[in-house]
Design a binder for these strands. Structure first.
Lengths: 229, 229
DNA sequence: GTCTATATGAGGATAGAC
DNA sequence: GTCTATCCTCATATAGAC
């Protein structure tokens, strides 16, 4: 539910509440401070896991004491909640934009792959937390993190629709399972956060192109065979 | 280091100690009990995460009290250690067997993919723990879990060698990065534990074939193009 | 908005009786 | 091999002063 200590205005939020929405141009000082704390926490969550990260560590990272954190957030859960919704709002927004532009399914799918890899750097910590702590957060009592599944379902729907369109128009082979294929793609992208480090020769853009190429054209050389090795 | 309370004979172990090794046919009662406890713990670790799982829960699952667990294991870490080594011993053993048989690189790679998917059911819990708690276990003080990286490196070497061989003999396209490709394959396989559930139409065998097909031949129909969509 | 001080509980682990 | 009882530490969260 993203319970904030300082509400700052109720807008009809994207996924649940605002989180990414900028507050009425109140010079944003309070909100910036809050966002900064969330970022620090996200890094710790990503590095050590949500549970292994203590509120004391988060506070220490920010140069304050743990008690002071509770002026900004009413619980540790609220912090991780905000980490995740910020990422998911951005992701879903990007997907929607691509789909609204329209186009051929194969091109759209390639674009969606690029979006995924494109979130790797700005949302590295959130994606890591999402993957490592998904089970745990979902297992918590209450419905606070139910939206994770809701968003996942919406995104899955977007992908599967394009894969099926691609198969219908003959751009994609019809003998693969759309849902299975989607999951493979999804996982291949996100799991990359585990090892991805941008350097001289590797960035998210060419990582995306590398993946798009092998995804559509495969690893093998020569003619395609439906024979199984 | 897999510190056991009941040693049972020092053998020159596979990865570190025995773990999978059967103890001198002592009717195996003590070892069976131990293995059973490890299995119960693994399920809990997989479901809730290593840290979120308490020794009290593990004991309760086994119908004993937490203090009694320490008759079998000297710490919670020892339990998860055993969960992981059991899996890794099995995995690496299978890889080595395939490589010893030899053959064409593409066929070997397909076989290695099948091995990966084949471990999904027998080692579901261990694989889940490995993925979710890798960072945390690696972050613990001491070198206890250093072997995780050691095994990972060994396995990576096996895969990359075959991919490069495949490229050298012209079975695999030469314009993809071997290491990048390996990581994509590896991740695609393991991450499957998150959602894989065998049912009437899906089992690990056809999941593997589905993946092998798209991996080698790609998703697209028609002629290959090096053009990027 | 931060600090001090502290409530309250849970966790891993131990010692020794049975 | 399990139980009882308990130690010790560290966690989240709160209350109220500054």
């Amino acid at each position: 539910m993203n319970t904030r200590k300082h509400s700052g205005g109720t807008a009809t939020g994207p996924l649940k509440r605002q989180s990414t929405m900028k507050r009425a141009a109140s010079s944003g000082s309070a909100s910036e401070r809050r966002d900064h704390l969330v970022k620090l926490a996200a890094e710790l969550f990503a590095r050590k896991g949500f549970q292994a990260t203590t509120v004391r560590e988060i506070a220490e990272e920010a140069g304050i004491l743990s008690g002071s954190l509770y002026h900004h957030f009413d619980s540790k859960e609220t912090i991780v909640d905000e980490v995740l919704t910020t990422f998911l709002d951005d992701l879903v927004g990007r997907y929607r934009a691509v789909l609204e532009r329209g186009g051929e399914p194969r091109a759209i799918l390639a674009e969606m792959v690029r979006i995924g890899f494109g979130t790797l750097e700005p949302h590295r910590a959130a994606i890591t937390v999402m993957q490592n702590d998904w089970n745990y957060l979902r297992s918590l009592p209450g419905d606070r993190f139910d939206y994770l599944v809701k968003v996942e379902d919406e995104v899955e729907g977007m992908w599967i629709e394009q894969i099926k369109r691609g198969q219908a128009v003959g751009q994609l082979r019809a003998d693969v399972d759309a849902k299975l294929t989607y999951r493979m793609i999804r996982d291949s992208i996100w799991v990359t956060v585990r090892w991805f480090k941008a350097d001289g020769r590797l960035n998210t853009a060419n990582l995306a192109e590398h993946y798009v190429t092998t995804l559509f054209d495969g690893l093998a050389t020569g003619e395609r065979s439906s024979q199984r090795t």
